[in-house]
Design a binder for these strands. Structure first.
Lengths: 232, 232
DNA sequence: TGAAGTTTTATGTGATCACAATTTGATGGC
DNA sequence: GCCATCAAATTGTGATCACATAAAACTTCA
């Protein structure tokens, strides 16, 4: 049944109030985020359907949505797979993140209030704890929440879906790299960002976000790491 | 059969080599671009199916893809529609365009060659012609091609899908506004951009692109025009 | 032994159907 | 005249099926 490598997806509890398609979507989305789907591996509808225990229909819809979001790629053969990464593409994704997220942060700054800043500080503390425990998985997860909580201060959301798309494209490769090395440098950048928010200093915030992203992705941009990611 | 207002979609010729879903997708996409689908109007799968003369299945897939791209919006009721516009959201979309496209232009600049620049100049001439003829439709169309041809000089594309998403969200409202007024100011900005490309001047290119977008959307940002768009 | 041609299998696409939930339109009461 | 209530119609969701195409496996020949 398995073409090349077997696939294992950690299923989450199925909520009755939600449609099967939505459940399949979030399941597959997390599988992509966690790097559970090998890049280049062809995903067949029927295989995923039996894997998740549903009919092919919700799988089709979820795959199309994920493809539209850049998480998956539809080849000419009409086969769908996790896109393969290249060093140049990785760099482009990081640069796009910097451009979009520093902009999103600046646009969100005027809407920031003390409540939200307090929540952001809480997340930063959680990252601290996870970092000390060497839990790279949680660090990445909460780090995303940290960034999202900043950008979503802006009630007129147009950038967040675009940013999520970039995260989806980077995540499977970031994770492989992150497992090698738990970083602690981000703390400084996060503090810079939080101070900039407190001061309502847009320029400083942009710089802090940009530096945070660049630092967080720099280790993966080393030739040997990238090579490992690509061939993986 | 029609809930509130009747819908008319200009169908393009169905290419046999392409799947029905793809044809439906491009048809609906263009309908959104041309503002043929009234914002807020609920789109039902069966209605579109009979309108396009296909089964509900390809419609479902196309709607999901367009929703993932931000062209359509799925409400809690599981109803799909063209998102309504607000003045603030319009502004956010324009600012996001500026941030993303000026970045994309700068990232594409090193890859630009004389062949592509010549093609870009050709498109600018076509805009000139359409402008003189008062053909706002063609102006918008070719103007998009103009921008796209700049950004896609970069062979490692990650920003173009994001930019297309912003275009999709803005287009239906831009068109309504553009029908009131055919602009000619863009020519200057386009010349600035092309000169910057010829000089490989990234900063000047960023400024030209940003100014072009801002100018092109400024007329729509006037309170009265926006009000007309929102209530339309 | 290896490559080309043929058969067999697997897969995506699209149509049809059943069902539950939502919306709509009518009805009755204040 | 207006709103709550209920019945009928509509709609999205998901499953199953048929078919054309692509991939894979097998056979055959050089």
């Amino acid at each position: 049944m398995d073409k090349h490598s077997p696939i294992h997806i950690t299923l989450e509890q199925r909520d009755e109030a939600v449609t099967i398609t939505q459940w399949v979507y979030s399941s597959l989305r997390r599988a992509v985020m966690l790097g559970q789907l090998p890049p280049g591996r062809a995903l067949t509808i029927r295989e995923l359907a039996s894997l998740l225990g549903v009919s092919p229909m919700p799988i089709r819809e979820a795959l199309r949505q994920l493809s539209a979001e850049g998480a998956l790629e539809i080849q000419g053969n009409r086969r769908v797979m996790v896109p393969r990464m290249t060093a140049m593409k990785f760099n482009e994704l990081v640069e796009a993140r910097i451009a979009l997220e520093s902009h999103a942060a600046a646009q969100a700054l005027p809407y920031m209030d003390s409540d939200r800043l307090a929540q952001i500080r809480t997340l930063d503390d959680q990252i601290d704890v996870a970092e000390a425990a060497g839990d790279a998985e949680t660090v990445m997860q909460v780090n995303q929440d940290f960034h999202r909580l900043i950008y979503t201060a802006n009630p007129h959301q147009v950038t967040m879906p675009l940013i999520e798309s970039l995260w989806l494209q980077l995540a499977p490769f970031m994770r492989v790299a992150a497992s090698n090395l738990v970083e602690y440098y981000q703390i400084d950048r996060h503090h810079e960002a939080m101070e900039a928010i407190a001061r309502q200093d847009a320029i400083a915030l942009r710089l802090a976000i940009a530096a945070d992203i660049r630092d967080g992705c720099a280790f993966a941009a080393s030739p040997e790491t990238l090579q490992a990611l690509i061939s993986a």
